[in-house]
Amino acid sequence: MALEKLVKWSRVSSPWLLHFNSGACNGCDIETLAALMPRFDLERFGVLLKSTPRHADVLVCTGAVTRQQAARLKRIYEQMAEPKFVVAVGACACSGNVFRGCYSVLEGVDQVIPVNAYIPGCAAKPDAIIDGVAKLLGALKNG
């Protein structure tokens, strides 16, 4: 239907991000920031960085989730409005990476909240982050 198509197009064209550090080593955070800097400029794709969960569509999580942060991550996710998507940036956020088995780590964002896209890499490069976001959008477009 035309209206559905329009809505889908708008969702694909305008993903607003919320960045959350759930216990990362800083590597992915730097790269996420670098993706918004003049060289990579994510705003080309209509991406804006928002500061409140209510306005955001995509939750960008970096880092293996530490025990202290798990409850907060969940709360933030619950505050977001549907439809919402979660992108796990970096190997730690995907699976815990090298921190798997450490006592204060929950081994990945998907242990706490559902994840739509995984961007591997340690640290995920800005190019990979852009690619991951684009693939998420592509998947939305097609299905």
């Binding site: 809505v7 064209s13 400029d41 209509g46």
Partner: peptide, 24 residues
């Protein structure tokens, strides 16, 4: 650069933002 790919040079970006928010 600012918005680039939503319409020519991103000209449809605000409309996309608007429609997306309407559907949320």
């Amino acid at each position: 650069m600012g918005p680039m790919y939503t319409g020519s040079h991103g000209i449809l970006q605000p409309i996309a933002d608007f429609v997306k928010l309407m559907a949320k």
